[in-house]
């Protein structure tokens, strides 16, 4: 089975990889680009652990083929902190609010929450909960995650 050469931009860097057309964008990120922060919890778009931004749009990387990334911009959890490692307010608030237990779903929640706050800087609790319905967490009961997102939103509005 012949592989296809793909050029894309990931977290601001131009990258190239060879993809079997059956491989997902998630496979490409994890196995070809060494970006293991996006997780596979289901492979069927039901858990959100592989959430990434594709041209700024929130998607599940398991529901995009690697070859579909050609020419597109992708942002993953690895691109969320600043170049000097300064954490995004969401990342900081997740730690402060104990919004993670096992941490496996955390990258997906952070990427999805970032997409929410870009679109809706002042969300209600209900809006946060519905936006994040596709991000499953089995540890926390969501309480502290929702609080962390709301608190980060408040801080970002104040800082803006």
């Amino acid at each position: 089975m012949s592989k296809i050469h793909v050029t894309a931009t990931v977290n601001g860097d131009s990258v190239e990889f060879l993809a079997d057309p059956r491989e997902t964008l998630l496979d490409a990120l994890r196995d070809h680009l060494g970006l293991i922060g996006s997780k596979e919890g289901c492979g069927t778009g039901d858990c959100g652990a592989c959430s990434v931004l594709l041209d700024g749009r929130l998607v599940s990387a398991c529901l995009v083929l690697g070859v579909e990334a050609e020419g597109h911009e992708i942002e993953t959890i690895e691109g969320m902190a600043g170049p000097d490692g300064t954490l995004h307010p969401l990342q900081r608030k997740f730690i402060e609010h104990a919004a993670l237990q096992c941490g496996f779903c955390t990258p997906g929640f952070l990427v999805a929450s970032k997409a929410l706050l870009a679109k809706t800087p002042d969300p209600t609790e209900e809006e946060v909960r519905y936006w994040l319905a596709g991000n499953l967490c089995r540890c926390t009961g969501y309480d502290k995650i929702i609080r962390a997102v709301m608190d980060a939103a408040a801080e970002m509005r104040g800082a803006a």
């Binding site: 039901d46 929130l58 999805a112 936006w131 319905a133 596709g134």
Partner: peptide, 9 residues
């Protein structure tokens, strides 16, 4: 249909 992520596609 599906999640916010699925809505993106």
């Amino acid at each position: 249909v599906g999640s916010t992520q699925v809505q993106g596609r």
